[in-house]
Design a protein around this nucleic acid. Structure first.
Lengths: 349, 349
DNA sequence: GAGATCATTGCACACGTGTTCATAGTAAAA
DNA sequence: TTTTACTATGAACACGTGTGCAATGATCTC
């Protein structure tokens, strides 16, 4: 592994001059500079970022923590982050935590030891615990998809309440009265807020909330499938279903088919995310589009603002957009009838 | 930012002793060691990996280059890599190159400057050009999903020829005679080999190869859709289609539906990858399963073998597994008849 | 009691780079 | 010719950590 000292020796100058020459410093004679660069090229020299980082006190590296990179949502977010990082000449350290708060902390600690210039965390589960940690480590940190109203906290999210509202309103406006909610793991902030939006939409039109119609998966299709199966086995099953995300919606569609139901005629389904594949399923999925790539870009942008001494917006909240495709239709009369009957006899909660 | 010198001062010892104490060296008195560790904890000290890397001449970091992290195949591979890296205490630097050979080189150069301990490249497009580069930089590099028979090259792939063979044989055995191939971008190694497998399967049963039935997308659903549309507009369209990957297959299914064809009765489709969502589509996709996660694990494992001085297997080739689901059935008699007619009049290539 | 062994610690250097300051040489100004 | 300004370069230190070697003091052996 060759260093500037090696080419200094070869060019018969001091390593200081080499350092300057390779960074195009105007302080060094153009001819010597050229000579040094030629030698460096011949020897295949490449500057050591670790040596440079030590003196510059920056690594040109940012750390990204996600629950799982195999989750298309996170993949898109990371893609947006990487795009912006590249334009700033930064590299990305990636770690996954699989929704384990402990692993999330370990990942952040590891990033800190590596002296990243900033950290991005998607779907954090330990947001509040960062306060003491951040006191020690003076590293800017941006949250994506989770929001923590403390000072010195930055975040980029979509308005989850509004997303739940839009999705459920769409079903309500189609005439559905018996609308289920398929959530994510209990305690996840985004889940709580989307669920709240769902309830708000029901309240707007005085549809009673039935806790029987709420089930929870884990954001993946398999658990969504079993959760949906429970829902469909009810004496009075829903005619429409709002799913926490598109992956869950796919699982729900699968469960419905296996239960002998046709989509959308027997069960309308709304997802949330608008994944690349969501428009290619049969039927194409009605969903709330989340600007995943843009969220990644904005989060990274916020970080770089911070790094360059500016004061970016503290909390960025984006709007999801309802994309109506083929998985939602008005309820069939028979289902509607059942639903109406049930309304009469069910207690309002 | 506090260093060992700061706690050395606080504990009234030399920084050497601090360094030893924090690394649990038996050379230091247990009591002083404990005292030092307590002070370090109080001050929230965390070792600087950059300082340590400089002297240890290793960064405990590996670099991963993929075409796009939003591609589920790559996401799964990276997931497998990360899993193994974690068990070795390594971190992951991630870069995307979007199939641009130039960006691929830049990413590798950037990794080298950061002095990663090893590099993994998925679906490389510049394999041969690595020879001169590797001569300079003494960094182990492993290829995933592309194979380069030079010495000093390591790779993990599936047997693409066999995968194409299996997929096409499956369609042949169902009775199809007019089988299309929907490939990836021209020149990609995996595409060439899968296509060769496709042709071998046709030759086995003396089905003539018709170049009209071969189209190319770019591995994504949108281009696959338009490419498939061209195929279906033929005077004598295929009754079955082997797609380069599942993403392409989804696009093909979409195109078929828009063309008024039912799947699988009017058009059988085989994909390749077996993505998480491939079993949740309607109909569920018949495909060749690629052990993506395992490939990532094996590639990372090979790298760590290399790093620990062992001599791992140079070329690991895995077998894809045919997963028969619902998107493939024997051709309907009418389609079969057309196909047979065509056979008679078409020239063998 | 003298010498030997051992435990504990500090000094000094190394890793690769950047930067301040001083110095030597050169050209311009007086 | 002398003074001044400027150009080009090197010496020295810094960044944070690890380690070989020497030194100190204590304990043990004979």
């Amino acid at each position: 592994m060759i260093s500037i000292k090696d080419i200094a020796r070869a060019a018969d100058v001091s390593h200081s001059t080499v350092s300057r020459a390779l960074r195009n410093s105007p302080l060094v004679n153009p001819e010597t500079s050229q000579r040094i660069r030629t030698i460096a090229q011949e020897k295949g020299y490449r500057v050591s970022a670790v040596g440079r980082s030590l003196v510059n006190r920056r690594t040109d590296t940012i750390g990204v923590v996600v629950t799982s990179i195999a989750d298309p949502f996170n993949a898109e977010v990371v893609s947006g982050i990487e795009e912006i990082a590249l334009t700033h000449g930064y590299s990305l350290l990636l770690a996954t935590c699989h929704s384990d708060p402990n692993r999330e902390m370990l990942a952040v600690q590891s990033f800190y030891e590596r002296r990243v210039d900033g950290i991005l965390v998607s779907s954090s589960r330990v947001g509040s615990l960062y306060r003491p940690m951040l006191a020690d480590m003076k590293v800017p940190i941006i949250f994506i998809n989770s929001h923590h109203p403390d000072e010195d906290m930055f975040s980029v999210t979509i308005d989850n309440h509004n997303a739940g509202l839009q999705a459920t309103r769409h079903l309500v406006q189609l005439g559905h009265k018996r609308i289920g909610y398929l959530g994510n793991q209990f305690g996840l902030q985004a889940d709580t807020q989307r669920f709240a939006g769902y309830r708000s939409a029901l309240e707007e039109v005085d549809i009673g909330f039935d806790p029987e119609l709420v089930v929870h998966g884990n954001g993946g299709p398999e658990n969504a499938k079993t959760a949906t199966a429970r829902l469909l086995a009810l004496a009075n099953p829903p005619t429409a279903l709002f799913c926490f995300n598109d992956m869950s919606a796919f699982g729900a569609m699968c469960a419905a088919r296996e239960h002998g139901l046709a989509i959308p005629s027997d069960l309308s389904i709304v997802g949330l995310d608008d994944l690349l594949l969501s428009s290619y399923t049969e039927p194409a999925l009605t969903t709330i589009r989340q600007p995943k790539h843009e969220m990644g870009r904005l989060a990274a942008g916020t970080l770089f603002q911070l790094l360059s001494g500016n004061s970016p917006e503290r909390f960025i909240s984006m709007r999801g957009e309802l994309i109506v495709r083929k998985s939602t239709v008005p309820p069939t009369s028979s289902a509607d009838a059942v639903s109406t009957n049930y309304q009469k006899s069910s207690a309002r909660v």
